[in-house]
Amino acid sequence: MSFAHLFSPQPMHIPDGFLSVTVSVILWIVSIVVIAYALRRVAEDLGERQVPLMGVLAAAIFAGQMLNFTVAGGTSGHLMGAAIATILLGPWASILVLTTVVGVQALIFQDGGLLALGANIFNMAVIGTAVSYFVYQTVLRLTRGQRWGVLAGGFLAAWGSIVIASLAVGLQLALSGTSPANIAIPAMGAIHALIGVGEGLITIGALALISATRPDLLKAGEARPTGGRAVWIGGLLIALILAIISPLASSHPDGLEWVAEQKGFLDVAQGPLYEIIPDYVFPGQINEAVATIIAGIIGTILVFGIALAVAYARRNRASASS
């Protein structure tokens, strides 16, 4: 039995290179602001129990993502865990726990990039939690705390959070000029509408077990913590905006491209940063070709030469000293 598949990258983790610098930096800033606020909230709500609880739960979410089930034709479904984390921990701790999970995946397992980490945290921890919280709370209130309401709320929260987060990924790829909006957004949405069903069913199974064995653990998700209303509204807005923008952007990809170009989103290469270098310094096509060749050859020889020389010297020293 091989476990290599357990760390196969999921379509939700954006690697480096796929997002423009502008999109990456903006989403880093948004994520940092949300995390900073969540840290304050958690310190007040959970008190000193917070560190062991969130640390171990983050490890459990990571491990839970390894559990999979056969779907068909060699594909398998598994858990992302935003909904279950939100239900078990409440929104603020969930944001921190998922941030930790996504952070370790990027830092240690290269599942998702480092410059793209801000975006991945935004999609999975912030959007995942906010949408889960909004959906789950709404269903709970509508069903007045019945057990089936917990399960239905869990399923819908899991499905909704996955689909909305995937729309956000598609939109970010389109804004970065990496993928056309009319392909990226519907494709991400369609794939995750299916993946989300698996996520929803696993979430039901997990909630069924937890509500049978430790119903007290579901209290955190049912409680309305300080700032809970803000998360609820945030989840509602994110879901609404993405649900409205996505079909618009997909049907009018040129419109999105226009926005992207106007804002210098598409490629910072065309942005103001580069305009500080005057065009007349190295004009013409010949220079580019020459520069390519020279830089390629010299650079490769230089860098490799130094590295090999150091490695060689070290080996000699090691053999001399032994």
Partner: peptide, 25 residues
């Protein structure tokens, strides 16, 4: 059913993680 069983496994993992975090605390 397969998805739900997997959910049960995840749930049991989470319950045990909660209890472990209590002991660690």
């Amino acid at each position: 059913w397969r998805a739900r069983v997997t959910g049960g496994m995840a749930g049991s993992l989470f319950v045990r993680a909660f209890e472990r975090s209590d002991r660690i605390y």
